[in-house]
Structures are given as C-alpha cells and as structure tokens.
Write a protein that binds this DNA or RNA. Structure first.
Lengths: 188, 188
DNA sequence: ACCTGAACACCGTTCAAGT
DNA sequence: ACCTGAACACCGTTCAAGT
C-alpha cells in the first residue's frame, strides 16, 4: 500500500483518538504505518503541517454545521471537537498557523456578518470562536488529566453542556445588544 | 547558592521570556542554573508542577487587578499575560490541572457573583475567563509563528486591543441581559 | 519517485552513588 | 539533605544511499 498524505492524516487521526496529543508523535505514526520515521517527511513538510491537516479532518465532521442558527452552529462545532482528544488545542494551533482556512469557523463568521456591520462582525465571530475553543480545550485538558489519573474529578465538574450553552447565549445576546446600542461599546 | 523551588521558578520565568514555551525544558533550566537536570526533581515533582508555579508567577503581576470593574479586570489579566510568551497556554493548563488556585481568575468570578445568582455567576465567569485565555493564546501563538518566521503577518492582524475589548464588552452585556431577562437563556 | 538506515541534537524522568 | 552521573525510553528532522 502506497504511503500518501491522506493515509498519514488518517493514521494521525486514529493515533490521536488512541493516545491523545501527548502520544501523537511522528515516530509512532510511522510505526503504525509500518514505515521508517523519515518516510513521512517525503509527503508532509513538518509536524505542524500535519496538525493543520488533522484540524481540517476533525472539523470535517462539522461540515453539516447549522447555517441558520449561530447558537446551534457553535454547538455543532463543539460536538465535532468532542469526537477526538485534544482537538480544541489542535484547531487552535491550526487557526493561528493558517488563519481563515478552517471552513466551519468561517461559517460562524458569515452568520454573524448578517447581524452586525464590520469590523464588529469579525470581532463577534472571533469572540464566539475563541470562547468555544477555550471552553472545549479546558474540558479536554481535564479529560486528559483524569485519564492520566493525575487529578480526580472532585473540585468543580466544570465542563457541562449547560455552562457551554449559557456562554454561547450570553455572547450572542451581548453581540446583539451592542448592535442595537453601540454606545455600550468600549471607547476607542 | 542553594537551589530552591523559588530559584527554579525564577529561572523558568526568565527562560520562558527568552526562549518561549517550546524552548522551556527542564534540561535548559538546569543548565541556566548550573546544575544537573536531576537536581530540579529534588525540589519540584514534575514539569507540570513547575508550569503551575509558573502560571502563578505570571499572574502575580496582576495582583493589583481592578476590583470594581469586570471589564478593567479582564484587561488587567490580559496585560499580565502579555508580559510573557505563551503565558495563556500555561495558565490554561494550570487552570485545568489545579482549578481554582489562580487568584486573579477567582477575583473575576467574585465580581460577577455580585451581578448574577448561582450557578449563572460561575458560568459567566467561566465564559469571560475562557474568552480572555482563548484570545490571548491566539495572539501569542501568532507571535511565536512570526518570531519563527514560519508565517508572515499579512492575513488579518487579528489580535488587536479593540477586538479584545469588544469581546469583553459583549460578554458582560450579554451576561447582564441574561440576568434581567433569563428567558433568553437556552432551555435546559 | 519513494523509502530506509542512520545519525544529530534534543527531550522528561529516575536513581544509585557520592558529599 | 542535597546533588551528580549516567542511564532509560523517548522526541522531530535531515539526508545520503538504496530501489
């Protein structure tokens, strides 16, 4: 079976589910594929490039993102993220590394552009996206620590769907309020 | 000079400013302190524990956090974070590893508790904190990529103070609106 | 064109042994 | 009590050489 970029991303996706980001090494992916570590570098320039491709695959599960309701769309993105370990961290990195390349996040921005003028629409989208990624990143960080047994779940089982939905609703309400009454915006 | 936990955290803080998180290794800290790598482990159990201590030191700059205005307090936290590289990622990890131990973040929660009942106050604080950390993390990720020369600043110079303040204002406005009209909260 | 073998310059962590 | 020396089991990446 020929080694292709696609098969490498598949193997990375599988390795992520199984070992998490801390166990996702180029060497392990190579071993799972039955090739030498160097072979990967013929198809992919670096681990960073691989992570970007992995982010796209992870959010690929959210292609069917809701296009009519921003709150539902945010929820769809979270659901896609929760299908893999440490996905929020990976997507967050990908967004910094290649901003604007992740389709579902662009979709969120498009929806908000219908409600607000620029540049407020972009800021609003950024607010929502960073909240979603930050929330899920913390959920997943705690998952990893629990899995490692390094922490118990006693203090504040923080990552609830309820808390997530509250934040999304608050951000959308606030963004709407600032569209109606821009005077509550901070002075520039 | 005796090796102490405090001197190790100092050295880590200095190394973070100089090399960033990717260059912050136990071995380099040991080298900067003129000791063998193993010496550190007599004083600190693991790199994860060191990162928690480092997060506290980073946010220590925000002890003088504004206690009367949540928007100003969020800005104070961002300012403290921007004094070191990759600080948002470190603080984010620390918060997952030892939730509730970072004083300035507890302060934010206390302020919001005056405006909302529980559990909404906790959710609101979480929303704001995760937004702040997510926003600054992306600013700093882009800084690192720029520094490494792996990306140019062309596409969307996203991390502006204006965008940050917009997000904070929107969240606070939204949280306030949900306190006054709880019916816009999502169904449970 | 595609991959291997082997190396380079690193990691975090442990632990006997020294002082 | 505190630290060294040395090892263990890893990393990402490069690159001549093979096919």
């Amino acid at each position: 079976m020929a080694l292709t970029r696609d098969r490498i991303v598949d193997a990375a996706h599988a390795a992520l589910r199984e070992y998490g980001l801390s166990g996702l090494s180029m060497r392990r992916i190579a071993q799972d594929l039955g090739v030498a570590p160097g072979a990967i570098y013929y198809h992919i320039a670096s681990k960073q490039e691989l992570l970007v491709a992995l982010a796209e695959r992870i959010l690929g599960d959210a292609e069917s993102i809701c296009t009519s309701d921003a709150a539902q769309a945010a929820s769809d993105v979270r659901d896609a993220l929760l299908r893999a370990r440490n996905s929020a961290e990976i997507v967050s990195f990908a967004q910094a590394y290649r901003p604007g390349t992740l389709a579902p996040l662009r979709e969120l921005q498009t929806q908000l552009a219908a409600l607000l003028p620029e540049p407020e629409a972009k800021w609003a989208a950024q607010t929502l996206i960073q909240y979603v990624l930050g929330f899920v990143a913390e959920e997943q960080n705690r998952d990893e620590l629990l899995r490692a047994g390094v922490v118990s779940d006693r203090p504040e089982p923080i990552g609830s769907a309820e808390a997530f939905h509250f934040g999304v609703a608050a951000i959308l309400a606030g963004v709407g309020a600032m569209a109606d009454q821009p005077e509550i915006a901070p002075e520039r």
